[in-house]
Every structure is written in structure tokens, then in C-alpha cells.
Write a protein that binds this DNA or RNA. Structure first.
Ligand SMILES: NC(=O)c1ccc[n+]([C@@H]2O[C@H](COP(=O)([O-])OP(=O)(O)OC[C@H]3O[C@@H](n4cnc5c(N)ncnc54)[C@H](O)[C@@H]3O)[C@@H](O)[C@H]2O)c1
Ligand SMILES: NC(=O)c1ccc[n+]([C@@H]2O[C@H](COP(=O)([O-])OP(=O)(O)OC[C@H]3O[C@@H](n4cnc5c(N)ncnc54)[C@H](O)[C@@H]3O)[C@@H](O)[C@H]2O)c1
Lengths: 227, 227
DNA sequence: GAATTGATGTGAAACAAATCACAAAATATG
DNA sequence: CATATTTTGTGATTTGTTTCACATCAATTC
């Protein structure tokens, strides 16, 4: 039974990612300990929120002593299974797919695009660190590298069809860049990234802001924005 | 006074975008009228939610008659200022910037990247429909095209510096692809798009899902996911 | 043209997330 | 070592969002 699966990252999880990236930076600067208000300052949230988030994910600090950065990072690595490597496949080596395949931050976070795929034989000749395979090799590669997550960067029109293939071959999570809602079994996680919407929503809020004059209205406006 | 500005699109606004894209599709198929449950089915939400969302944005239909697609789309165009054209600039013509500059969906939605910029003289020779300017022309172009929104696709290390320039020249909204929190005046909207986090969160939820056996736990898990 | 049906629109209720407030614990101070 | 200080961790409260329930209206049926 297939159905539309949309999925948005919980805000608390988003914030945990934020804290982590901040912790990594602080660690590089030689800092060893943080307090909730340190993280709060660096990430633009409240100290309360930091502690509540940590509480949600079962992270504990030391009363009065704050948090040791190394411990925090260890816990988070475990939480996000970053101690293990994650093999990813990328489907569609067009404009966007090519850019993503070259993005070094994925590897830095133990997420390896082990193979890319394209229907177009011409694309299969792209010289790159990552091989571009024909779609016929999909099952073989997914099995060999035990891939569970895929990035989908094919045109809108092909997205559902490719998603069906992916799911058939055991993929359990998809980051989908095509502006369509995919129908998949309910145990498959779909994260739709719609860059048009991201841009358009900024335009929307900018216009709204420009229309507002008085300070009172401005406050109301800011209720639309979550920190 | 500069500060960290993060901003996430309200879920209700995200859903409005969803409804719209669905309406466009239905219109192309020759459909003229929809009911809240039609849209609900197509977008994976509940009919109640559709109506509540419409209510939030002041959209009215006809009792018993549902909604005329053309009317809905008109209202939405107005809401999102789509009747006007929006001029955008893109900074950073690296891997990602190049892909974005070629993305045709922006134009289809009246969002025109009127110019792109890069610090690297080599990048300024890219053959493309959109000219790649040197950073020294930034103010001139922003003024000429009355640009209010920018896409930022420069390396992490330069992002803040470029954002400062943009704000100085009157930019009021930024879609930021660099994985850093920008500090800007509070009237500037920042929409951070962090593709690493998007991918990582899918891995997180997939792993969580794979660990769960019983159906009861699965239900709890799904509370993490918003539709 | 009264009765029935089917959809909207919106308060009320239930649920979820963020903020507040403070007890508890660890450290510092005198 | 008793007291003051600082920071965590979490119930209680507030605020925000989604779902429910139903009055309202428009079309259809009899
Ligand atoms: N270019 C961007 O910046 C951008 C931004 C946001 C979203 N997107 C979305 O990402 C997707 C890709 O965009 P793009 O600009 O890279 O398009 P593109 O046309 O450049 O690339 C699409 C690639 O997919 C391949 N392909 C087509 N059908 C396939 C199939 N059935 N199986 C495997 N491969 C197939 C094509 O050969 C091509 O290489 C689209 O859905 C687009 O809407 C693109
Ligand atoms: N490549 C991807 O798929 C991807 C995905 C997600 C996020 N990002 C982020 O997007 C940004 C760009 O990534 P990329 O892969 O395109 O990098 P890139 O190195 O290919 O491109 C960066 C471009 O910015 C230009 N640049 C550098 N400093 C500048 C300055 N001060 N002013 C103007 N231009 C300047 C460089 O000349 C280069 O052309 C990075 O922050 C990266 O983390 C990239």
C-alpha cells in the first residue's frame, strides 16, 4: 500500500544539528566546556531551549559545570549513528546532481555517495571521483553497499518511477529534490527539499515585512518566525 | 545591531505552497473545481487542515460548491506577489551556484535571477544565459534591478562577509546555502538551507525506524513526523 | 417550496511546543 | 564547613497548532 509521505525535520532535531555544528567550531577553537547559554548565544535560541532539547534527546550535563564539548559530541555522534559510515546513492546526474556529487561536506559527516546513476548514457561518461552507473546496475550496487538512503535529483516527470525502483530495491529513506509528492509505503521516509518554495517563502516574508510600518505590527509579524 | 536570524517556513505556509502546486497540476488536467478533501487527498493532509489553512490566509470558498481553481490560484498569486516579477541575485557560481542558475523553475514562478556574482575572475567567463559579474558591480546591479532577495552559495568562510555586503546594499532576504548562521540586522530574513542536515536527518529517522519492531512503537515514532 | 444532502468555516477541545520558574546539585567563598 | 553562587534539569504554565464538532449555507430532491 503506497501513500503520500511527507516529512519535516522536527525543530528540536534541527536545533540539535545546530548545536553540534557550533560545538565542532568551538572545539576547533580550543574550547573544552560550554554552558547552555554559550550554545544559546551562538545559535540564537534561549538557554532554556537548549536544555529542554538536550533533555528530549537524553543528554545530561553537570550541574554548575556545564557540558564537556567532547562528551556532547560523542553522545551526538552516537545519536546520529555517525560512528558508522553511511552509504548513499544519488540518482540523476544533471545540474543539481552533479553539484551534490561534488559536495565534500557529506563525506566529512560520514555520508558517502558510493555511486551515482543516470538514464542518459552521455552522463555516464562524466569524469568524477564517483562513478556514474546506468540504471540497470541499481539493484546490484544497493545490495553490495547495503545502501538504505538515496538522493533523488531526476526531473519531476521521472521521480515517482525512480522512487518505485528505489523502494523495490530496499531503499528506506529518500531526500527528494523533485517538486512532486512521492507515493511510497509508509515505512519509507521522504524528505522533500523544494528550493523554489524556500526562495518564494523568503520573498513572501520580505514583502510582508516591507508593508509593515509600525512597531506593533512588526511584533505580530515576528510571531510568524520561529527561532 | 546585528544578530543571528534563523527562520523556518511555517508549516501552514509550506502546505499552501503544496496546495498551489497541486492546483496547478489539476488545472492543467482540465479540472475547474476542487473540494477540501480533493486537495487533502492529493497532498496527504486532512480536509480540516486544508480549510483551517485557507482560513488562516483569508481564503474563502463556496458553501457546498467547493473552490474554483482559477479563483484559488488568483488569490494565491496575490498572496505571494506572483503577479509582480521578483529580481534575485545569486552570489557564488561554484558547483551549487551554477546548478541553481540553470534551474528553470525559478523563472516559471516569476523569480528571475537577474545577475550572478563571483570573486573568481575565471568564473566570470562561464558561458550561460545569466552574466557572472565581479563583486565590485554588486551595488550597481542591486540598485538597477531593485533587488531585495539574494541566494548565497559561497563557501562557509566567506558567507558572513558577503552577507554584510548584501545587507549594506539593501538586500532584505537571503536564502543561505552555507552551513553557518549569519548575523544580520533583525529586519533581514535569513532562510538557511542545510543539505547536510536534510540528508542526515533522513538517516537518523531511517535508523530509528529500522530499530523499531513492534507496531506500538512504530506509532510513537510517527509522532515525530508531521504531515 | 419544504426537506435533505453535502460542503464550508470556525469556535471549542485536544494536543504539542516553547517558556517560565524553581528545586537540586556542584562548585566557590569566607 | 556553612553559606553563597552558579548552572542544570524538569515540572508547571503559556503559547501555538491540529483536530473535532457542528452551525451555516447552497444546491438537489421530492
Ligand atoms: N538545478 C537546480 O538547481 C535544482 C534546484 C532545485 C530542484 N531541482 C530539481 O532537481 C531535479 C533535477 O534538476 P536538474 O536541474 O539537475 O535537472 P537536469 O535535467 O539537469 O538533470 C536531471 C538528470 O536526471 C536524469 N534522468 C532523467 N530521467 C531519469 C531516470 N528515469 N532515471 C535516472 N536518471 C534520469 C537525466 O538524464 C539528467 O541527467 C529536478 O526535479 C528539479 O526540479 C533542481
Ligand atoms: N555543492 C553542493 O552541492 C552544496 C550543497 C549544499 C551546500 N553547499 C554550500 O554552498 C556553498 C557553495 O558550495 P559549492 O560546492 O558551490 O562551492 P564552490 O567552491 O564550488 O563554489 C563557491 C564559489 O564561491 C566563490 N566565492 C568565494 N568567495 C567569494 C566571495 N567572497 N564573494 C563572491 N564569491 C566568492 C568561489 O569563487 C566559487 O566559485 C558552500 O557554502 C557549501 O557549503 C553546497
Amino acid at each position: 500500500m503506497k501513500q503520500i509521505t511527507k516529512y519535516v525535520i522536527k525543530n528540536s532535531l534541527k536545533r540539535i544539528f545546530l548545536y553540534r555544528s557550533c560545538l565542532v567550531r568551538l572545539k576547533m577553537m580550543g574550547v573544552e566546556k560550554v554552558f547552555s547559554y554559550t550554545l544559546a548565544n551562538e545559535t540564537g535560541v534561549t538557554p532554556d531551549q537548549v536544555r529542554k532539547d538536550f533533555s528530549e534527546f537524553g543528554i545530561k550535563g553537570n550541574k554548575r559545570g556545564g557540558y564537556k564539548i567532547n562528551e556532547l559530541l560523542d553522545i551526538m555522534e552516537n545519536l546520529f549513528h555517525r560512528n558508522k559510515d553511511h552509504n548513499i546513492v544519488l540518482i540523476g546526474m544533471g545540474n543539481l546532481g552533479l553539484a551534490l556529487s561534488k559536495y565534500s561536506k557529506f563525506v566529512q559527516r560520514n555520508m558517502n555517495i558510493v555511486a551515482t546513476f543516470d538514464i542518459d548514457p552521455f552522463k555516464q561518461k562524466i569524469r568524477s571521483d564517483i562513478t556514474v552507473y546506468s540504471m540497470s546496475r541499481l539493484k546490484e550496487i544497493i545490495d553490495r553497499f547495503r545502501v538504505k538512503v538515496a538522493i533523488l535529483a531526476v526531473p519531476e516527470i521521472s521521480a515517482q518511477e525512480v522512487a518505485d525502483d528505489l523502494v523495490r530495491h530496499g531503499i528506506k529513506g529518500i531526500v527528494n529534490f523533485a517538486p512532486v509528492l512521492l507515493k511510497v509505503p509508509p515505512d519509507v521516509i521522504i524528505n522533500n527539499v523544494n528550493l523554489c518554495d524556500e526562495l518564494e517563502s523568503v520573498i513572501y516574508y520580505v514583502h510582508k515585512q516591507l508593508k509593515v510600518e509600525g512597531l506593533k505590527n512588526l511584533e505580530i509579524l515576528y510571531k510568524d518566525m520561529k527561532y
